[in-house]
Structures are given as C-alpha cells and as structure tokens.
Amino acid sequence: TFYNFIMGFQNDNTPFGILAEHVSEDKAFPRLEERHQVIRAYVMSNYTDHQLIETTNRAISLYMANL
C-alpha cells in the first residue's frame, strides 16, 4: 500500500520523511487504501500545508512508477 511505501521514509530528513511522520500520526489516514485517487483526495481534503500536499503528489507518482 501507499502507507507502507511512505513509512519506509520514516526518520529520513527529507520531504518524504516529513510526510511519513505526518501520515504515521494521522489516525484517520487510509492505511489500507491502494487507489492513489482516494489517497490524493484524502490529503487534499485533510491537509492544509501546501508543501505536504506537493510532497504527497510526488510520493504517489514515485509509488505508482514502482508498482
């Protein structure tokens, strides 16, 4: 899942690491979701930090390219 992918960046001092920290603390994050459209919609609806949203979009693109 995307959640498992992004958790691989925990403790990294990178934008993906920052995203992983936010996702791990977000109890409502769709952890079992595999459809990138649902993940993107969730982030757009629940996150207000523009940098975090952009990082999510980049992470989703990388995740999709590696499926």
Rank of each mutant, 00 (worst) to 15 (best):
I60D: 00
Q51M: 13
T14F: 03
L67N: 11
N11P: 04
R35L: 06
N11E: 06
V43P: 00
N11V: 05
M64Y: 08
R31E: 03
E25V: 11
D49A: 06
Y47L: 03
F5G: 00
Q37P: 05
R35D: 15
A20R: 06
T56D: 01
F29E: 03
R40G: 05
I18Y: 10
R31S: 05
N4M: 12
L62I: 10
L67Y: 07
T55Q: 05
G17D: 02
T48H: 11
S24D: 07
M64V: 13
L62W: 07
N57A: 09
F2P: 00
A65H: 10
T14I: 03
L32R: 10
Q10L: 15
R40Y: 12
E33M: 05
N13S: 09
D12E: 12
S24I: 09
R40F: 12
G17K: 06
T1I: 05
T48V: 10
N46G: 04
N4K: 11
A28Y: 14
H22A: 11
N57R: 09
L62Y: 07
N11L: 07
T1Q: 03
A59Q: 02
Y3R: 01
S45P: 01
E25H: 15
H36K: 04
A65W: 11
I18V: 12
V23F: 12
N4T: 12
V38M: 10
I53A: 05
N13R: 10
N11G: 15
G17T: 04
L67G: 10
I18G: 06
F2S: 02
T1M: 05
Y47K: 01
L32N: 13
K27Y: 08
L67M: 13
Q37G: 09
Q10Y: 14
L67K: 13
A41I: 09
L32S: 12
D12M: 13
I18R: 14
I6W: 04
D12S: 14
D26F: 07
T14D: 05
L19G: 02
H50P: 15
E34H: 15
A28L: 13
M44S: 08
L62S: 05
V38L: 09
G8H: 11
N4Y: 10
H50N: 12
